[in-house]
Amino acid sequence: MEGTATHKAGKLVEVRVTYDDELEDVTIRGDFFLEPPDALEELEAAIEGLPTDSDHARIVSAIQRVDAQLIGFDAETLATALEEAVHQ
C-alpha cells in the first residue's frame, strides 16, 4: 500500500511511504532545513523497516537516533506526517 501526507508546524513536511507489514519506501520532502543535508537519506532509512503498526513513541525514537539537526520541523512533526500517510 501507499500513502502521502503533509504536516505543517513551522516548515512543510511531506512524507510518502509504501508499506505492507513494514514501512518500506519512505521519501521525505518539504521546505525545511536539515544539517547535514545528507542526513535526509539516513532519516528515511531509519524509518524504513519499522513495523507499520509501530506506535508514535517508537517512530519518534527511531528518528531521534539519527545524528542530525532538524530545523523548522522536529521528530514529532515527521512522525505525525508518517502516521497520517499510513492511516489516510
Binding site: R29, G30, D31, F32, P37, L40
Partner: peptide, 9 residues
C-alpha cells in the same frame, strides 16, 4: 528550489 523540495510540487 529548496534542497529538500519536491520538484513537481
Amino acid at each position: 528550489i529548496g534542497r529538500f523540495q519536491a520538484y513537481e510540487n
